[in-house]
Design a protein around this nucleic acid. Structure first.
Length: 472
RNA sequence: GGCGAGGUCGCCAAGUGGUAAGGCCAUGGUUUGCAAAACCAUUAUCGCGGGUUCGAUUCCCGCCCUCGCCUCCA
């Protein structure tokens, strides 16, 4: 599988350092509220990445952390009148529910930051010992950026600019004392507003800095060097830059061998933000009658390195597109005769595609999910289910299920599977209309159909009978 | 100001040095008592101006516009 590497700025073939297991780390959510669809774009793409890697024959170890101690979690837990743990556990649970709905494979390890404070302290001690960190008067510990020559190698920012501090404005807000503006906190000395949220360290009471948790947990679960590190583009700087500095300065080894960054989701052509009221969560979309599967389709309908413009219209489009795949799959299933096996949601290690091979190849080439979708539709149209042998139809159906498994999409329920509650009076009207139709009393039949439509129910006839469904 | 992404059919969105996937919508057709559904078909010369080339949407230069990041936002 080939994937663009942010550090090298070019496409790279992915390899497992140990030749067996591809080990990778994804920066997880900060659990202080519900994750929004922008967060999920990143997690969904990482999930597709893992699925494709596994289907290509590679075994994986996927680590994704939970950030449950930082400024925001502390601030909001206090505002909610809850302990930090109580607060973050609730949001972590909610996050997992959303992940399940979105069909995200659970990471092999999902470490929490507060449960790895000792590891973080140990890392700081190493950095202190090597002269990469210093303690300030207020009990905080900072990383000395000038002590690490490669600082800035990931984000390719101009060295001088980094040392001077780019914006300038943010400097004034910093309440901690440090030598240089670019230096960042490894440990934050205890402050009044932190309340009960402090831990003991060799430098006094306080709490770990944000960047540090990932470095410490990467080391704990994946060692000094691992195969790939991933997150949203906004993490390139400073978060990932700082992780590299901390980890490599401490270990002297290459930190991550490959960097995979997912570009932001836009909403209605602009940044998603609370103030603009265009920040959607999965729950928001479900309230509007959309499913997580549809959201997943939308999130993979654009290439991960391009901004993707989310609109509610795109959710509508996704619903229709998915339905089409479902119907085409249904036709294959019918031709194959009888029910196919339930698709196994375990991702097998390796799969040979006969059908939909082109689509899978799009995924192997820099995770081109939109092209893969295009190729699925093209192939679906070329396959004439009614002209295939039952055997071929079965094989095509089988591979269709595998390519959807790679994308993590579920075949949508086709109409007849849906159990819709139909009120008595509607049922009666529909029955009367059917009788009229059978009697070829077209005028009466059509009038009844219009009446039903007026009451919000649509009738769809087929050869044997009719179906009632709520008007969409 | 620095770094980066992007401007492709009404909307969304791929791709390529040799005249542009796919989805939604629209239109026409087959089918249907009429619809619905399904199926088939049709719809773009790729922001603007130069350059390189036999040939550029794809490479180079300039310009315009949009968007993101620039110290704790996926």
């Amino acid at each position: 599988m080939k994937l663009y590497d942010t550090m090298a700025r070019e496409m790279r073939e992915l390899t497992a350092e140990d030749g067996e297991n591809f080990r990778f780390y994804c920066c997880g959510p900060t659990v202080y509220g519900p994750a929004h669809i922008g967060n999920f774009r990143t997690f969904v793409l990482q999930d597709v990445f893992r699925r494709v890697l596994q289907l290509s024959g590679q075994s994986t170890q996927h680590v994704r952390n939970i950030t449950d101690v930082d400024d925001k979690t502390i601030r909001d837990s206090q505002a909610a009148g809850k302990s930090l743990g109580e607060f973050t556990e609730a949001w972590t649970a909610k996050f997992r529910v959303d992940c399940d709905a979105l069909n995200l494979l659970a990471p092999h390890d999902e470490p929490s930051a507060v449960e790895h404070i000792p590891q973080q302290i140990a890392l700081i001690e190493q950095l202190m010992a090597k002269g990469h960190a210093y303690k300030s008067d207020d009990g905080s510990v900072y990383f000395k950026v000038t002590s690490f020559d490669q600082y800035g190698c990931l984000s390719h920012l101009d060295q001088r600019e980094l040392r001077d501090g780019a914006g300038g404005a943010a400097v004034a807000d910093d309440e901690y004392e440090k030598d240089a503006v670019a230096d960042f906190a490894l440990w934050k000395g205890r402050k009044q507003e932190d309340g009960d949220n402090f831990w003991l360290s060799p430098w006094g009471e306080g709490r770990p800095g944000w960047h540090l948790e990932c470095s410490a947990m990467c080391k704990e679960y994946l060692g000094d060097t691992f195969d790939l590190h991933s997150g949203g583009v906004d993490l390139v700087f400073p978060h990932h830059e700082n992780e590299i500095a901390q980890s490599e300065a401490a270990s002297g080894e290459t930190f991550a061998r490959h960097w995979f960054h997912i570009t932001h989701l836009m909403v209605d052509g602009g940044k998603m933000s609370k103030s603009l009221g265009n920040m959607y969560t999965l729950a928001d979309l479900e309230e509007r009658g959309f499913t997580a599967n549809e959201l997943r389709y939308v999130l993979i309908s654009g290439h991960y390195r391009h901004p993707l413009n989310f609109t509610l219209q795109s959710m509508e489009d996704a619903k229709k597109a998915l339905l089409r795949i479902g119907k085409a799959g249904g036709a294959l299933r019918e031709r194959a005769g009888g029910d196919a096996d339930e698709p196994d949601q375990q991702i097998p290690r390796g799969h040979d595609f006969i059908y939909f091979k082109a689509a899978f190849e799009s995924l192997l080439q820099d995770l081109n999910s939109p092209e893969a979708l295009g190729r699925i539709f093209s192939e679906l149209r070329e396959l004439k289910a009614d002209k295939m042998s039952a055997e071929d139809a079965q094989a095509a159906l089988n591979d269709l299920e595998y390519i959807l498994l790679a994308l993590g999409l579920s075949l949508p329920e086709v109409e007849e599977d849906k159990q819709v509650e139909v009120p008595e009076d509607i049922r009666d009207l529909a029955e009367k209309r059917w009788q009229a139709k059978q009697a070829k009393a077209w005028a009466q039949s059509d009038a009844l159909r219009d009446e039903l439509l007026g009451k919000g129910w649509e009738i769809k006839d087929d050869k044997e009978g009719y179906q009632l469904c709520p008007r969409s």
